[in-house]
Computed example of a mutant assay.
Amino acid sequence: MSSFVVKSIGSALNATSLISSKYAAKKAINLFASPRKGRYNDDQKRIIDSAFFEDICYNNMEIATYRWVGKGKTVLLMHGWESNTARWEYILNDLKAQDYNIVALDAPAHGRSDGKQFNAVLYSEFINAVAKKFQPEVLIGHSVGGMASVFCMYHYQLPSVKKMILLGAPAHFTGVFDRYKNMMGYNKRISSGLDAIVLKRFEKPVSYFSAANFTESIKAEGLVIHDKNDKIIPYEDGQLIASRYKNSEFISTTGFGHGLKDESLTPKIIQFIND
């Protein structure tokens, strides 16, 4: 959406909050959690056509999974917001060349997975359901896929996972939420209402959902990669995660942006997996 449209929606909800702050906050959270893209287009379908497709049921929801079968380590891939498994095209051939057993999933309300709304907690539950079935040794998560991976490891302590790679991951939900509020220009009524919805829905305050804090108890080895020019998730988030994640290595890049789709990183990722 253009900045004009974004600010117009924010202004409309601010006006609505004068009548009913709860209604305006509910509309604001629904907007925040509803991806505008992430389903497959025809070109993206071509990328996943070579995979073995399987749905996994979780709480009456179907989780779309894709497998490129190999004899090596099982690697589980998690994409980010408004994306899908096709985002991994840039690295798939290199992972296949290592004969890894590659598994990927689509997040809630993304790709071929069920749902109309998304949140990182539900995503972490999707990851747990898929991990139970395929027993991955390595997790690779991009952006909120990295955050959800950390949430999953923190809450479920996946015993099969020995290594975790976080690409441009947010350090905490507070930052993500604040950037959304600021982008929309929400007033204090809506801002407070959004925080109240999170507390009621998850029985935890927004500040609780900190990937950086959660990594402190994760024993799996970590590789944290973040770009200095990331315009979506601040570089400082990567630094914070790496500082808290004691059993991790930090790779700082310049010029790769939030996507981090650069072939120079692939050998480093593979070396980390193989070591």
Rank of each mutant, 00 (worst) to 15 (best):
K133Q: 12
T174M: 11
S217M: 12
I19F: 14
W88H: 10
A211H: 02
K163F: 02
M164F: 05
P267N: 10
I140K: 11
H258Y: 03
G193S: 08
Y245T: 00
F126I: 08
V75F: 02
M147T: 13
T74N: 06
C57G: 02
M61E: 15
N119C: 13
F214Q: 06
K231G: 03
D275E: 10
G193T: 04
F134K: 03
L18N: 13
I48P: 08
P136C: 02
Y208G: 15
L166D: 00
H79G: 07
F202Q: 09
A109I: 12
Y123E: 15
H142I: 12
R112E: 12
N247F: 02
S8F: 07
Y58F: 15
Y180N: 14
N213S: 07
T266G: 01
A211V: 00
E203L: 12
K181G: 03
P159M: 01
M183N: 11
K73P: 02
K45Q: 08
V224C: 01
N93C: 03
R87C: 10
I165A: 08
E216W: 01
A109L: 11
R87E: 08
I165E: 03
S34N: 14
E62L: 12
S11I: 01
I29Q: 14
N41W: 03
G141P: 06
H110D: 14
Q98D: 06
S191V: 04
L92K: 14
F177H: 10
L31R: 09
S11M: 05
P234C: 01
L139N: 07
K71L: 06
P136D: 07
V176L: 13
G72L: 09
L166P: 10
A33M: 13
G222W: 00
N274L: 04
Y100H: 14
A120L: 09
P267W: 05
V150D: 07
K181R: 10
S3V: 11
A104R: 11
G115K: 10
K7N: 04
Y23F: 14
K268L: 08
V130S: 09
A129W: 00
I197Q: 04
M164L: 14
E221G: 10
F32I: 05
I165K: 11
A25T: 11
W81T: 06
F53G: 03
Y123S: 15
D114R: 08
G72P: 09
V144T: 14
Q271R: 12
L13E: 05
I251R: 02
M164N: 11
S21Y: 14
A15D: 02
S2A: 02
T266V: 15
S50K: 06
L92P: 08
M184W: 03
G257V: 13
T65L: 09
K188E: 11
L167K: 05
Q239T: 00
N59T: 11
K162F: 01
A86G: 07
F32N: 12
F134T: 03
A86C: 07
